[in-house]
Design a binder for these strands. Structure first.
Length: 625
DNA sequence: CTGCCTTTGAAGCAG
DNA sequence: CTGCTTCAAAGGCAG
């Protein structure tokens, strides 16, 4: 647990301490976020006003251009268009209709308007994509006929106009009252969709985008609280309040979506303003079986992302709460995994215990009844989920083991604040998890996984490094791919990461430097890779390193290359723990070092090294050849 | 097809 | 209380 090791921090209650520290920080952050959000919103409004004016003028000019050559069949069109334009002028004070700029999405700029964080339209593309995905039908340029005077379809002008007027009125209303009437707006959208369908049925040319993924796929984010423009963050009570009444309600999935902004990854790598909160590609920390939300069966295939977002934010307040676990009700939570789908091959249909009358079977059946509730993700896991895609994109690596090494290093390169975010997130997740599954215990999942190989060799001789047991020092990374990876050989890790990602990963250069300095030894320079991995392995992960100074010491002393369990790859916390965790939690220490450079950090760094030096025997080592 | 690899952190268990 | 073990995610890889 990264806590402040100094500077007023104490080692006890690391988690809570840090969390509390963080909470304060977060609150401040949030306040500032809100303020900035409001400011952004204001800016956005003003900018939109300007845009509106521009749009109006351009619209007029367009009309002027057409007037010289009026056509009889366009008269009615012109009239309706004028009417429409008038309606537009009346309604649009915010440039809501930016058709000239977004010809393809004449009326689909909602997210841009509704997202207070988009002062500069940075997210506009994603927002549009979002809408396209969310409401594919809306992607249809319903006013295409109107938009393009050259291809009018007089036969449908009336309908088009009607639709457009509906759009205009609805969206103006929508825009003005979005924050408070979102649900209503959705109904309006549904109406529009219906009308568009009508248009389609009337054979009005309709353009569908080919890049539709899943309409709901991009909606997932890890946390919505920071993105809901009109709803205050509710960290600990993820319930969704009715925007109008403020009363908790059971939202329809479609109603939820707006509160769960796009995941950057899902929308073309568009960086999210609050990227750290955004999970990867619509995935949630709890992978919920598809159909989790309302349909217990995968066949009903509610989009997993949607399910996760919905379920992840469904607190007991929203759903009937059963003290012994929501799963008893068949209510899905991301943490609930249907073994049939995942992991538990032997069990089946765990998701529907409530659906089926409790079939009292053999004693073992009881286990089957219990759905597999996954552990809440810890901070690092959350970080991994978020960053994995980036790392994969930046590197050609695909193997998770290698990616994880990189992530592990990056994790340690993160500033304390950044890590704190994830710790806080993880804490909330645990809290939510505990609320959702009061009776759940990590113990419940013990033995669920296939037997781990680790325990086979508890009593191997010090020299007898089990092949099975990973070498804690050897890089699992394929030699070809180092990226900004862990422990690049030759201390290349000390070099500043060439890739932008590296810089990204280590926002604070000093921190990164410290990090690197702090782990020089951990960078096992062995390019050997897997070969040594087999022969030079560290201790069996299980018994290996820690307590038994005997084994570890012998191994360490015998090998020239010393690998420090410093947060680096291979230093499983549990292994390294014996060395630092108790007296000076390693992560904590490391955190301090990662923090902005300061005398204290320097001291910590030195002490850290000193610590290592003082306990050479504890260091897991590996032979250099 | 199953399990390992790899990472960190949380939690449980054993002594 | 300390230390060890298991599990969480993820995807290539080996058997």
């Amino acid at each position: 647990m990264p806590q402040l090791n100094g500077g007023g921090g104490d080692d006890l209650g690391a988690n809570d301490e840090m969390i509390s520290f963080k909470d304060e920080g977060e609150q401040e952050e949030k306040i500032s976020e809100n303020v900035s959000a409001e400011r952004d919103l204001d800016d956005l409004k003003s900018s939109l006003v300007n845009e509106s004016e521009n749009n109006s003028s351009s619209s007029d000019s367009e009309q002027a251009e057409r007037r010289p050559q009026p056509r009889p069949d366009l008269d009615s069109y012109e009239k309706t268009r004028d009417y429409f334009s008038e309606a537009l002028r009346r309604q649009q004070d915010g440039g809501f209709f930016k058709s000239p700029h977004y010809p393809g999405y004449p009326f689909l700029m909602i997210p841009d308007l509704t997202n207070p964080y988009l002062s500069n339209g940075a997210l506009s593309p994603s927002a549009r994509t979002y809408l396209q995905m969310k409401w594919p039908l809306l992607d249809v340029p319903g006013a295409a006929g109107l938009k393009d005077p050259r291809s009018p379809t007089p036969g449908h002008l009336g309908l088009n106009t009607y639709v457009n007027v509906i759009f205009t009125i609805f969206f103006s209303f929508f825009r003005k009252h979005f924050l408070t009437c979102f649900a209503l707006s959705l109904w309006g959208i549904s109406l529009c969709v219906f009308l568009l369908s009508l248009l389609q049925s009337n054979k009005v040319p309709v353009v569908q985008h080919a890049h539709h993924v899943h309409p709901l796929t991009p909606l997932i984010t890890y946390s919505n609280e920071h993105f809901s423009p009109g709803t205050p963050p509710s960290h600990l009570s993820p319930e969704i309040l009715d925007p109008k009444t403020g009363i908790p309600r059971t939202p329809h999935p479609s109603e939820l979506s707006p509160y769960y902004p796009l995941s950057p990854g899902a929308v073309g790598q568009i960086p999210h303003p609050l990227g750290w909160l955004v999970p990867q590609q619509g995935q949630h920390m709890y992978s919920i079986p598809p159909g989790g939300f309302r349909h217990p069966y995968p066949a009903l295939a509610m989009n997993a992302s949607m399910s996760s977002l919905v379920s992840s934010r469904f607190s007991p307040h929203m759903m009937p709460h059963h003290p012994h676990g929501m799963h008893q009700t068949g209510i899905p939570h991301p943490a609930i995994v249907s073994p049939a789908i995942k992991q538990e091959p032997n069990s089946h249909d765990h998701m529907s215990p409530s659906m089926h009358s409790k079939s009292p079977g053999p004693a073992k059946k009881e286990e089957d009844k219990k759905p597999h509730i996954k552990k809440p993700l810890n901070a690092f896991m959350l970080y991994m989920k978020e960053m994995r895609a980036k790392v994969v994109a930046e590197c050609t690596l695909k193997e998770s083991a290698a990616i994880n090494q990189i992530l592990g290093r990056r994790w340690h390169s993160l500033s304390r604040e950044e890590q704190a975010k994830y710790y806080e997130l993880a804490r909330k997740e645990r809290q939510l998890h505990s609320q959702l599954y009061p009776g759940w215990s990590a113990r419940d999942n013990y033995g669920k996984r296939k037997k781990r190989k680790r325990d086979n060799k508890p009593d191997s001789t010090p020299e007898d490094f089990s092949i099975r047991n990973k070498n804690q020092c050897v890089q699992y990374l394929p030699s070809e791919k180092m990226c900004d990876s862990p422990a690049s050989s030759h201390g290349s890790m000390l070099d500043s990461p060439a890739t932008p990602s590296a810089a990204l990963a280590s926002p604070a250069a000093p921190a990164a430097t410290h990090s690197e300095q702090a782990q020089p030894l951990s960078l096992t320079t062995k390019p050997e890779g897997r070969l040594h991995h087999h022969f030079l392995t560290g201790k069996p992960s299980g018994s290996a390193s820690s307590s038994s100074s005997s084994s570890s010491s012998s191994s360490s002393s015998s090998h020239p290359s010393i690998s420090i369990p410093i947060g680096t790859s291979g230093s499983h916390s549990s292994h390294s723990a014996p060395i630092f965790s108790r007296p000076i939690p390693f992560s904590s220490l490391h955190h301090s070092m990662l923090s902005p450079p300061s005398p204290f950090h320097q001291a910590a760094l030195h002490s850290h090294h000193a610590l290592f030096q003082s306990q050479p025997l504890s260091l897991v080592t590996k032979s250099s050849d």
